[in-house]
Simulated assay, not measured.
Amino acid sequence: MAKRGGQKKENWKKKRKQEYLEKKEFRYYIFCEGQATEPKYFQGFKRYIEDNPIYRDMVLIEIEGCQAETMRVIGRAEEYVSDNKIAKGEIWCVYDKDSFPSSDVNGVVQRTKALNQKNPNIQYHAAWSNECIEFWFMLHFAYYTSNNHRSEYVKFLNEKFQELGIGKYEKNMNNIFEILMKSGNPKLAIRYAKRIIENGVGKTPAQIAPGTKVYELAEELAKYLPEEIQKYFY
């Protein structure tokens, strides 16, 4: 009997939690190719937004590291939306070009456009980076347009972090959001990323090398940050 009662209580808690989540007006579901670097960066936004008394009860942010490449990321996002009967929200797929085929990298963008025609309440976005998320991180420190191998981006970050006394850049840094925000310049990073995309008008994501659309998600989430943090982005 105690077990059945415990189960009822657990079901009640889940129901209450679901009702609470459904009340949130703005909902973001972020699916990342990697399991560490990208999720930990966006967890920074989530932490500060949840500490913001103005928006914490209005904004839902869920982040999942997929450990999957390109097309599998959006596939996982679609499965999640279906399995959890998501009726409203923005679905963001964060992924890298790396050495994957151009057809896969461009294919995610094409798939988002097709999905967005089906339901105006659920909109998919492709926050790609060519070649990798580290390029977005680099833009916090410099305007960079050389199409080098991703190892050069990590090298740049290593040198910059050591110059700033931060130490070595690591892909799974828990405080990467704070480092980029306070030691770098998110405002300039957004401006630089936009300029690169504007210069690549008419090109596919695979052809814009280097380039990134991660700035779109950063700019979107920054709207809900506390004012003293938001100033770094706008």
Rank of each mutant, 00 (worst) to 15 (best):
Y232N: 04
D51M: 15
F31I: 15
I196M: 05
E131I: 07
I229W: 03
E216H: 12
K223Y: 11
E178Y: 05
A2Y: 05
F137E: 06
F26Y: 15
A77R: 03
K17S: 08
A209W: 00
E170C: 05
I190E: 02
A189G: 03
F31G: 12
N175I: 12
S129W: 02
H149F: 08
C66D: 09
N130D: 02
S103W: 03
R27H: 11
Q207T: 09
I208C: 04
F137M: 10
R27C: 14
V81E: 04
L164Q: 07
D83G: 01
R72K: 09
D98A: 06
M71H: 08
E198K: 10
W128S: 00
Y232E: 03
I61Q: 09
Q35T: 15
C66H: 05
Y48Q: 11
P205W: 04
F26L: 14
F161T: 00
K187C: 07
Y232A: 11
C132I: 02
R72G: 04
N175K: 09
Y80F: 14
A206S: 15
D51I: 05
I179P: 00
L115N: 01
M1C: 07
F137D: 07
R4Q: 13
K155T: 13
Q67A: 11
T204S: 13
R111T: 03
Y29G: 10
K23G: 05
E219N: 11
V73M: 07
K160P: 02
P53F: 13
C32A: 11
D98H: 06
F141S: 10
F135Y: 15
K13N: 07
M1R: 08
Q117M: 06
E216F: 09
Y48R: 13
Y80M: 08
